[in-house]
Write a protein that binds this DNA or RNA. Structure first.
Length: 500
RNA sequence: GGCCCCAUCGUCUAGUGGCCCAGGACACGGCCCUCUCAAGGCUGAAACAGGGGUUCAAAUCCCCUUGGGGCUACCA
């Protein structure tokens, strides 16, 4: 199967029953990419035919995820289009009409079997080691009997008549020909007793009326594709191309679900990932351009994407590699964009991972801009901005006496180093990185310490941390006054620790 | 259980019969760079699930086994 060259119409059709996870979103992403590539349309349709599982938060999360990843759609809820409405619950009449037409044409029938009876049937079959399946009893119900049940208030469904022998096959764009024995299928429900269609009926009808050319969906749908084909046959319409993409698995190799930790795109957003990085990363789950390229701009992905190159086998989501890729994207950002990305995280309340509440908001952008070069290559997540930069914004830092000494240094030696550093700090001018470095290197030699022994206590004294950006850039950015204050404070801390 | 799908380093993958005693990336180890941490460079360890065929030649094609996954709802 070759890649489409003419414009496709593809749809992302989530059901609002839970927050969409990465695997689900990746399907949307593939759809979006192929639509961009062929200059086609990307449609979003909400499949809310299961009233009992409907969740409005989930619906919100679907659109939020799409928006965050930049997967804008051409037709869909809130966007309109020629084939709306794009919410299935608003199309109910169409489904009922189609199902009834199928009854009239003899392709389907009413069934008054109750859920209890169905359950009992299955139990019996299980006990007899038979595969559990509907036995087609409704086929023999007369219109009078059905009417009687209806009067009695029994639930009535409509089921499709499935031939009891023969084969049905289709050509899957990623897997090739897949064949099923019809005798494996039972007469399945197309219209539920609440007058809502099942997925099978609804999506077939909608895809047809919306002109969908390629059904791109998860692997888990392969098994029910014969049902969809049967509905097409009964309706006398041509099926679309089917593109079943492999599932994304959790680290235990099971279908991704809540228990696999962070699984939704939105969670990754909140953890400090960049949408471009996530976009790039998840499109590489189940697809690759064929060479060793991994970091790709969106337009390159659009250019190079191809259905032929979608993998057959499922992929496991590896958050560690995503972190690496996020770091690559952060390093490639220009300063202003990085500031914009970082600010919301830094300005959150302290309890929510932001800078200490004592730091006034909004944060000084001009000052932050000066700091970015010092930390850009050190960041893997946007959430790390707070911790790597906080000492620049805090009035003071408070390293303990234990933290201040460098390797193989006692308190006395640390005090000696800091006192020498402090004296020099008071007279250093200009307070510029290059000049500071030459001065402090000379000082180390003068007091017969290794550079590291002198620098280490200074670093801890002024940043409060063992690890920080390059020392002299840091000192310069921090300013002479704060360096002096912090060193004085550190010396005091050490002296007090000796007395105690 | 039945049906369907899948099977290359721990993970993502390249590989479409000879270029492969299998290449890249993440993670991991070593070395270099170095004021710490990163970043970067070099380097190491690490895989064709097993068995049968087909072929001069198989990771690549076929079959079986094994393993994993999915479906088997008036859920999608």
């Amino acid at each position: 199967m070759t890649n489409p060259t003419s414009p496709v119409r593809v749809r992302y059709a989530p059901s609002p029953t839970g927050i969409p996870h990465i695997g689900n979103i990746r399907t949307a992403l593939f759809c979006w990419v192929i639509a961009q590539q062929t200059n086609g349309q990307f449609i979003v349709r909400i499949e809310d035919t299961d009233r009992s599982r409907y969740d409005s938060d989930a619906e919100k999360a679907i659109f939020e995820s799409l928006q965050w990843l930049g997967l804008d759609f051409d037709e869909g809820p809130g966007k309109g289009g020629l084939h709306g409405p794009y919410v299935q619950s608003q199309r109910q009449a169409t489904y009922v009409k189609a199902a009834e037409k199928l009854v009239e044409s003899g392709h389907a029938y009413y069934d008054d079997t109750t859920p209890e009876q169905l359950h009992a049937l299955r139990e019996r079959q299980k006990a007899a080691k038979q595969p559990p399946r509907y036995d087609g009893r409704g086929r023999h119900r007369s219109p009078e009997e059905i009417e009687e049940s209806r009067q009695a208030g029994l639930p009535i469904t409509i089921r499709l008549k499935v031939p009891d022998h023969g084969k049905i096959a289709f050509e899957d764009s990623v897997r090739g020909k897949i064949t099923f024995e019809l005798k494996e299928l039972d007469d399945f429900v197309i219209l539920k007793s609440d007058q809502m269609p099942t997925y099978h009926l609804a999506h077939v009808l909608d895809d047809a009326s919306m002109g969908v050319t390629h059904v791109i969906r998860g692997d888990e749908w392969i098994s029910s594709t014969p049902r969809h084909l049967l509905i097409h046959q009964a309706l006398g319409i041509t099926p679309p191309k089917y593109v079943h993409v492999p599932l994304i698995l959790g680290n235990d190799k099971a279908k991704l679900s809540k228990r696999h930790g962070a699984t939704s795109a939105l969670e990754y957003r909140d953890m400090g990932f960049l949408p471009d990085a996530v976009f790039n990363f998840i499109c590489l789950l189940g697809w690759s351009p064929g060479d060793d390229t991994e970091v790709m701009a969106r337009k390159d992905i659009i250019n190079r994407f191809s259905i032929d190159r979608i993998n057959d086998s499922p992929a496991t989501f590896d958050a560690e590699k995503l972190e690496w890729m996020n770091g690559v994207y952060i390093r490639n950002m220009n300063t202003d964009d990085l500031i914009c990305a970082l600010l919301p995280f830094m300005e959150k309340p302290e309890s929510d991972g932001g800078l200490p509440d004592s730091v006034t908001r909004p944060i000084d952008r001009v000052y932050l801009k000066q700091l970015i070069p010092l930390v850009q290559e050190r960041l893997k997540l946007l959430t790390e901005g707070t911790e790597t930069l906080d000492f620049f914004f805090k009035e003071n830092v408070d390293p303990s006496a234990e933290e201040l000494p460098g390797k193989k240094m006692g308190a006395a030696m640390t005090i000696q180093a800091l006192e020498a550093a402090l004296a020099l700090c008071k007279t250093s001018s200009p307070f510029e990185p290059e000049f500071l470095e030459s001065e402090y290197r000379a000082l180390a030699e003068k007091i017969q310490m290794k550079p590291g022994q002198l620098f280490s206590p200074i670093r801890v004294a002024i940043t409060g941390k063992k690890f920080a950006p390059p020392l002299f850039d840091t000192m310069s950015a921090l300013g002479q006054d704060r360096c002096i204050t912090r060193m004085e404070k550190a010396i005091l801390t050490l002296k007090l620790s000796i007395i105690a």
